[in-house]
């Protein structure tokens, strides 16, 4: 079976137990995606599947035939960084950096969700326009833990990009 990762076709015929996370890291050499808890609690393994953010540790590679996966390596490069990557550097949105690839992939997914008008648990009006306040951002990014506690800078970095993205 085949899937597309960062624009490249990849084949997989391995052990059915291979999670998408392990496939990316061990078979594809894409070690930007990190393994934290391996149980969907920390968000370090967040990648985009067909544009939506998921925990790659809780998904089997075999279940992704035909899917389009974007990892942190596909989000941007040192020469051509994504605006989120630039903003994380500018705002020092990390200390050890282990959670950063997951934070950035998650933030990319989150910005797409907001553009689609998805509400969150703290959105007052389910049918109104979503405004990305700090409270909204904290709720929407609660699936990504940072054990260094760089949250305030992470929030600043994402808010800056979200603000620039607004018309």
């Amino acid at each position: 079976m085949e899937l597309t990762i960062n624009g490249e076709r990849r084949a997989f015929n391995g052990d059915p137990r291979r999670t998408l996370l392990d496939f990316l890291r061990l078979d594809c050499g894409l070690t930007g995606t990190k393994k934290g808890c391996d149980h969907g609690q920390c968000g370090a393994c967040t990648v985009l599947v067909n544009g939506q953010r998921i925990n790659s540790c809780l998904s089997l590679t075999l279940m992704h035939e035909g899917d389009t996966i974007t990892t942190i390596e596909g989000v941007g490069t040192p020469d051509a960084p994504d605006p989120l990557q630039t903003a994380f550097v500018r705002h020092d949105g990390y200390q050890c950096g282990y959670c950063t690839p997951g934070q950035i992939c998650s933030a990319k997914g989150m910005l797409a969700e907001i553009a689609a008008g998805w509400a969150s648990a703290v959105t007052r009006d389910l049918e109104g326009e979503v405004v990305l306040t700090r409270e909204e951002l904290a709720e929407r990014m609660s699936g990504n833990l940072c054990r260094c506690g760089a949250y305030s800078n992470i929030v600043d970095a994402i808010l800056e990009v979200a603000g620039e993205a607004r018309p």
Binding site: G40, G43, T46, Q52, R53, I54, N55, L58, S59, S106, G109, M110, E113, A119, S120, A121, T123, L126, R140, S142, G143
Partner: peptide
């Protein structure tokens, strides 16, 4: 909608 949004995270709810 409220009950669903009260559970888990966006990553998990997407799956």
């Amino acid at each position: 909608a409220r009950a669903i949004l009260a559970g888990a995270t966006f990553q998990l709810r997407n799956k």
